[in-house]
Design a protein around this nucleic acid. Sequence first.
DNA 1: TTGCTGACTTCCA
DNA 2: ATGGAAGCCAGCA
Length: 101
Amino acid sequence: MNPQHAAFIAIVRTIPPGWVMSYGQVARAAGLPRHARRVGVALKQLPEGEEAPWWRVVSGEGRISARGLDGSDDLQRVLLQHEGVQFSAEGRIDLRRFAWG
DNA sequence: TTGCTGACTTCCA
DNA sequence: ATGGAAGCCAGCA
């Protein structure tokens, strides 16, 4: 397990239910700015044993990043809505609500 | 080493 | 709002 990935996962584990963070925020919180893309890689390669709320990580625009094949996109949306996260008609999340303040 | 590829972000027209 | 380009950086061929 890549140490950087471990750092990202550690941050993701601190995201409480009903809350979301963008890839960029996770990267910065882990002390690794400009590594937003790596956060995506870390989550994609998240081992079975590692438990982390990957679905609470979205893009900076408040949308769910596409994976392409599997329907994990839909699963993510369902999980978030189940936690009470509000989506706009266009399927967007208003990240301003999650800015510390 | 070079070039391409991303679960990204930021600028600019 | 919207599309495209550029910046970014580790992994891989």
